[in-house]
């Protein structure tokens, strides 16, 4: 397999105390050249550490890192042909836009005139024209983002790393930049590793998603696989706010959840299981049937309603697109499962 980035049994602990806990625990994965992989996980799961080890800003305690088939474990960032966008953008505050963008060329010994020309070209590529002499403090968040992107791309790296690049932008700008990053990656054929804690962002841009939890890889797969067939309680809960209910799998492949019997898409061994149901996977039956629920809370969010029902299984959170006939508080309804958005995972110990 032609991996752009490969981790082999990478472990990392901070500090020199051998008793200190491992932040990354024997992680192995490969990222195919030319693909965009997001590393997704809650804060503190080790995802940023993984990214910084790819960059060469941290060195692993144990294991090997390969970039383009070459071992780079002990090499510094400058020797890896890797570039990175920082969460804070990290634009040099004492240099103007062009100086920032051509910095990488200048320190590599490119003379000023050609470096300036290439910097202006790079800025044009990310859609920023006419801001060359501005200082970073005179730019908006989105413009700073573009400058940082142009700066990261000017050395034509094989690999580009993103550390939560969109977290400082407002919602509209976030989608715009997300699409831009994706199209840029495909146009230039870059290998991209992208760290985020926002699962919808991950679903939207990735070829592959790696979900990390507590220093280990919980699961990896395409966005569809991750969303529809989570392999564990953690992944099911993390991808799309699924709620987990205890159920029982029978030998014939059907799963019982309270009064409901259904046949899951993936087969499971008989015994105790967890059923992960996403809030949009509940169907509300006004005439009863399925799980009995009484409406406790209601919120109107414009394009849908959020309901919370009290049921024998505990409170259930439901998203309903049916705007025309909202339920009243206290209404008794039946809850059934739709044929999507429901997955069954083994109960964790």
């Amino acid at each position: 397999m032609d991996y752009g980035i490969e981790f082999r049994n990478i472990s990392k602990r901070y500090g020199t105390d051998p008793a200190a806990p491992l932040v990354v625990k024997s992680v192995s994965f490969g990222i195919e050249a030319g693909s965009l992989v997001t590393i997704l996980g809650p804060s503190g799961c080790g995802k940023t550490t993984v990214l910084r080890m790819i960059a060469g800003l941290e060195s692993p305690t144990d294991g090997q890192i390969f970039i383009g088939g070459r071992e780079v474990t002990t090499l510094g960032p400058a020797e890896r042909n890797v570039s990175m966008m920082f969460q804070s953008y990290a634009l040099f505050p004492h240099m103007n836009v062009v100086d920032n963008v051509m910095y990488g060329l200048r320190v590599s010994g490119v003379p000023k005139a050609p470096a300036t020309a290439r910097a202006i070209e790079a800025l044009k590529n990310v859609g920023l024209v006419g801001y060359d002499a501005r200082m970073p403090s005179e730019l908006s968040g989105g413009q700073q983002q573009r400058v940082a992107l142009a700066r990261a791309l000017i050395l034509e790296p094989k690999i580009l790393l993103f550390d939560e690049p969109l977290s400082n932008l407002d919602a509209r700008l976030r989608r715009e930049m997300r699409e831009e990053i994706r199209s840029l990656q495909q146009r230039l054929g870059l290998t991209v590793a992208y760290v985020t804690h926002d699962q919808s962002e991950a679903l939207a841009v990735s070829d592959t998603i790696i979900v990390m939890n507590d220093g280990r890889i919980a699961q990896r797969g395409t966005p569809q696989e991750m969303y529809e067939r989570p392999g564990s309680e953690f992944v099911a809960g993390f991808m799309g706010e699924a709620m987990l209910f205890p159920g029982v799998a029978d030998a014939d492949g059907s799963v019982r959840l309270g009064p409901i019997d259904f046949r899951p898409r993936q087969s499971v061994a008989a015994g105790a299981v967890k059923v992960a149901v996403r809030p949009e996977a509940w169907q509300i039956r006004r005439d009863g049937g399925g799980i009995v629920g009484r409406l406790q809370k209601r919120a109107y969010l414009g394009s849908y309603f959020e309901y919370t029902f009290a049921t024998p299984l505990g409170p259930i959170f439901v998203v309903s697109p049916e705007l025309a006939r909202p339920l009243d508080l206290g209404a008794e309804v039946g809850l059934m499962l739709a044929d999507h958005g429901v997955s069954v995972v083994h109960a964790d110990a």
């Binding site: 969460q87 804070s88 990290a90 040099f92 320190v107 700066r151 990261a152 050395l155």
Partner: peptide
Amino acid sequence: DKSLDEASLMLRASTAQTLQRV
């Protein structure tokens, strides 16, 4: 901000260049 020196390192400046220029 620490990411300023890291950004410089990622742009293939040596540590000495980072110190001098950033």
